[in-house]
Design a protein around this nucleic acid. Sequence first.
DNA 1: ATAGTTAAGTGGTCTGACCAATATAAAGTG
DNA 2: CACTTTATATTGGTCAGACCACTTAACTAT
Lengths: 216, 216
Amino acid sequence: MQTSWNFEGGTAQQSMSTKSKVYEEILDQIKHFIKENKLSPGDRLPSERELSEQLQAGRSSVREALRALELLGLIETRRGEGTFLKPYRTYHTVELLSAFILQETKTRKDILSCKAIVEKEAAKLAYSKMNEGVIEELESVYSNNGLDPKKRYEQFFIIIFKKADNYLLETIWKLLYDFSSTMEETNYYNQSFYIEILQAYKKKQFVSIEAQFMNN
Amino acid sequence: MQTSWNFEGGTAQQSMSTKSKVYEEILDQIKHFIKENKLSPGDRLPSERELSEQLQAGRSSVREALRALELLGLIETRRGEGTFLKPYRTYHTVELLSAFILQETKTRKDILSCKAIVEKEAAKLAYSKMNEGVIEELESVYSNNGLDPKKRYEQFFIIIFKKADNYLLETIWKLLYDFSSTMEETNYYNQSFYIEILQAYKKKQFVSIEAQFMNN
DNA sequence: ATAGTTAAGTGGTCTGACCAATATAAAGTG
DNA sequence: CACTTTATATTGGTCAGACCACTTAACTAT
């Protein structure tokens, strides 16, 4: 077991910094600690009690700081085991914030419009990386009559987003998709849409992709 | 003083929900409370002690939930006064995140690419609603040499997003903009970009808008 | 009426306690 | 010896109570 954690001296109570709250100060210290000890995802942090002792702060304050890190998706706490660094997931925050944004944006129009935009651009991003294999994949989804319209739509775009190779864009789409699913009277693309998109990919007609998406 | 807060009955301790931690449950309850009582920015929430009593949870657990809300920029706590709802702002979170996230080129690419997409589509959405007054507004921003590149860029697009009339898209943009601001070596559009966009608006050349945005 | 004082309320923090889940070491078992 | 079982220590999760610092409002003295 590791015993000496090599914290930079000084209490968290109140240093000269501008931080008015202890937990904010602790946040910095923990950040510094991670850097100093070169911790990587999966590594364990000192226990709450140890942190509170090393930083000369109450355990509750340490917990508030950890809670913040957890909310940001930077650490993971497992009862009985400890606190661990999580692999960087930049978009966890985006997800969180988006959840709030979407909750307040009741405008159905906005959501559908955004979703169409994202899908269109993904289709365009995927264009340059399109190859025979992927086109066949898309075609098999399209011609699979066992799928209901929603499933077909979903699987079709999942393939496209994978090729588009922009994880953030994909995350945004998923959020919009999930939210739009909860709305009544959701319309999916019709047959001709898929045909035209596939045509554009096959015959390498970049410009015609744009036309397939309705704006607003 | 308000005495009855009208919480949905039940302890926060553990409901049937999947939430394993009390503070997560409290988070939901508080959100529900805000909605139920129609609180708007500036309004005060019940005190920590009152919340802890009403929700039958420890004050520390309530605090962990409040800390989460604070981190998301949804509330503001003022010692001696109370806890207040804040108008939605992303900056706080972004600041915190940027302190932790090591700039990953892959991530940066995604963000910049998404931002360009959103800006482009906003410019296109704004197209149909463009008129003399707005164009003049844009032109005055462009020709204002007192502005540094960043401010010019920001103000230019704020006008465009206003005209684009999609609040969700605008919010996403602000988020991406904040993120990108924390990254070093941020590039802004150059002179010719603004000129071309203005030209497209003035001469009603819709198609040429697209060309002004780089699709890396 | 005004200024100064006091009391109550609120967030911020610490401490100590207990619970629940896990990991580790010790003892038992084949 | 290897394997299971049992006890113990460690860790996160939660609660309760106690201060402190700060703000506000009511009260008092001038």
